[in-house]
Every structure is written in C-alpha cells, then in structure tokens.
C-alpha cells in the first residue's frame, strides 16, 4: 500500500478537490457538505422493510422464497442474509455471482453461512474469458457512463452491473418480489433502505445502453447486461430492492463478530476494502491512477456526513491506495498493462 496525502480535502467530510464537481470554500468545506441537510439518523430505520416483509409473507402465493439475497461471501452481504433470516424471518434464496476473482475462502464461507442459516444457495458463474473481456473493456471506458466513476472503479461498476442484472432477472423468473443486497451508500441512491423498481422501466432505460454493451462485448454482452423483457418475465412489473444495512447503526466490528459466530472467516487475500474479492485492490489502484481520487470517497464521505463514521477513520481508508506491485498478479491475469501514473 502507499499513503496518498498531498491533496486538499474537505475539512468536514473527506472529499478531495480532485473529486468531480467539488469546490472547497475559504473554510475548506465542500459544496456537498454545504447542501447536506445535516440529518444524521433519518436513514437508520427498518420500519419500511419490516412492513414490506410482512406484506410479502402474507401475500405469498406459492413461491418457495420471499426474497433473494445477493451473497458475495463478503461481510456485508453475509450480514444482510443473517438479518433477513433472523430479524425478518424471510425464506431466502441466496445467490452468489462468481466474477472470476473471488477469494478461495469464499466458497467455504458461503457454504458455512448457508448451512448455519438453513438457506438454499445458487451460484452463477459467467465464463472467465468473457469476464476478462468485460474487465478489459471496462478499463477502456466503453461500458459505463462518465458519472459512474463517482460510484465505483470501472471493473467494480461492470461487476455490479452483471450482479444487479442477474438478480433482477432471477427475481422475475422465480416470481420473488424482493431483492436484498449489502449495498453500501455508493451503490444505491443514498438514504434508501427499500427502493421500488419497475422492471419494465429498467428494461426501457437499459435498452439504449444495451446497444453499447453488444457493440463492445458482442451478442453475449446482452445476455449478461440486459433485463429480460420477454412477456413471461414481465409478469412481475414491480420489484423491491432492499439495502438493510443502510437502516442500522453500522459497526464493522459488531458485524464481523456476529457473522464469525456463525463460522464466517475473514479472507486474508482481499485487501483493505473487500472481504471477498481479489479484484477490488486492482480496481482501486487503476481508479486512483486515472482520476486521482479513491473510488470509495463518496460512499465514505456520506457515512461521515451522517455521523456513521468518524472523519479520521474514513480518511485512513481512502489514503491507503494499493501499489502497482500489490496488483501486478491480477493485472497479469487480466492481460492489462498497469497505468502507473498514480
């Protein structure tokens, strides 16, 4: 890791002046802090999710599951699954998407947790040559909008996109109304515990973007990035996506303690910011080299603004950036020459 310190940052959150659209005033406070409502506890409430889960269970018309949970094997998705089973008493189907770079510790963690919680599990694995092409194309800028750089690194954006698409298509196929994921702030609109999604709308907004994926990745690109818009799949027009972690007072140590009690073990090979994926550090390295800010800046800044994380802890996380040597193995596997401008 290298420590990146030479940049002016907001004195209230952590956003650096290199972050797109950021201006620091004379006091060193950024425009996003100025426009923030200041409300700290608004989002930490699971009432809406409790009400939704109650309705799903009482309306249940024969589906074997009440919700599907995106289980990456990392700490947050594991904790989400635990919450949905134990706190919300939901019949869960856990789904793991293997992006080709999961830590070898993940399969054992997934089996252990699903056994402990009594949950059915499915794994979906696109072929490695295709995923390698996705990551290569992500890095040349052809797959995402420019604004997506504010949310995550290029490779993470593509992976998240594949996961979200698969989860939505699976929910429709199995007639399951609720998708749950351990998305932290940067991956869903902020402050949202439950989001209503119209499948037809999603398909509509993606249809135009689908052409770009097909252009970059060939016909198989559509298979992994398109919402299924066939008539049968459209039976379920309305889906909900829930992010239960946003509704709690998140304490990483408490989360790890609870899932460790079920047998989860922290992998030793996934870097500072991930507890499941070997690609994450590469994504951070590349993102920083291109844009001179850490891809998790916005997510962590929001946690600081809402009082869920101290500024000093958030700062520690974003100034530690992987070095070229840290990620050379992964870049060799991807067949990518490292951008060493960072």
């Amino acid at each position: 890791m290298s420590i990146k310190g030479q940049v002016n940052r907001c004195v209230k959150c952590i956003l650096p002046e290199t972050y797109p659209g950021i201006n620091l005033d004379e006091s060193g406070i950024c425009n996003l802090c100025h426009s923030h409502s200041g409300e700290k506890s608004q989002r930490r409430n699971l009432d809406e999710l409790f009400a939704l889960c109650g309705k799903i269970k009482s309306d249940s018309t024969g589906s074997s599951y009440d919700c599907i949970v995106a289980l990456s094997g990392g700490k947050d998705s594991t904790y989400c699954l635990k919450m949905m089973v134990e706190r919300f008493s939901m019949r869960c189907l856990a789904i793991t998407i293997d992006n080709g770079f999961l830590s070898p510790a993940v399969p054992k963690n997934v089996r252990t947790i699903c056994d402990a919680l009594g949950v059915d599990h499915l794994q979906f694995r696109p072929p490695s040559p295709f995923m390698k092409k996705v990551y290569q194309k992500s890095l040349d800028g052809s797959l995402q909008t420019k604004a997506a750089i504010k949310r995550a690194s290029a490779v993470c954006n593509s992976c998240i996109n594949i996961i979200n698409t698969h989860m939505i298509n699976t929910a429709n196929r199995y007639d399951i109304p609720l998708i749950v994921g351990g998305y932290l702030g940067g991956q869903l609109p902020k402050g949202v515990v439950v989001m209503k999604v119209n499948t037809k709308l999603l398909s509509h907004t993606r249809t135009r973007g689908d052409a770009k994926y097909a252009e970059s990745l060939g016909v198989e690109g559509k298979r992994y990035f398109s919402i299924d818009s066939s008539d049968d799949a459209m039976n379920m027009k309305q889906l909900f996506i829930a992010n239960p972690i946003v509704g709690i007072d998140y304490d990483e140590n408490d989360v790890i303690a609870e899932i460790s009690a079920l047998g989860w073990q922290r992998p030793k090979d996934t870097g500072v910011h991930s507890s499941n994926c070997l690609l994450n550090d590469f994504g951070i390295f590349d993102h920083y080299a291109r844009y001179q800010f850490h891809p998790y800046e916005a997510e962590l800044a929001e946690l600081v603004r809402t009082g869920q994380m101290s500024r000093s802890v958030a700062l520690e996380k974003v100034v530690a950036v992987p070095t070229a040597e840290d990620v050379r193995d992964v870049s060799d596997k991807l067949g990518i020459k490292l951008n060493e401008n960072g």
Partner: peptide, 29 residues
C-alpha cells in the same frame, strides 16, 4: 451528475441522455 457541460460534446436539450451515455439506469432512478 453526468460530469458534462451543457453545450459541449453534443449535450443539448434534445440529446438522448441514455443513448449518448450521460445517464444509466441507476442515474435514471
């Protein structure tokens, strides 16, 4: 949200924001 400036690079009132890659499905929400 799109990191683009109105009037530059084809961004005007008639631009299809999805086709031209200014907004994705997340951005639409």
């Amino acid at each position: 949200v799109s990191l683009a400036e109105f009037g530059e690079n084809n961004l005007n009132d008639k631009t299809d924001l999805f086709e031209e890659g200014y907004v994705d499905s997340f951005g639409f929400v």
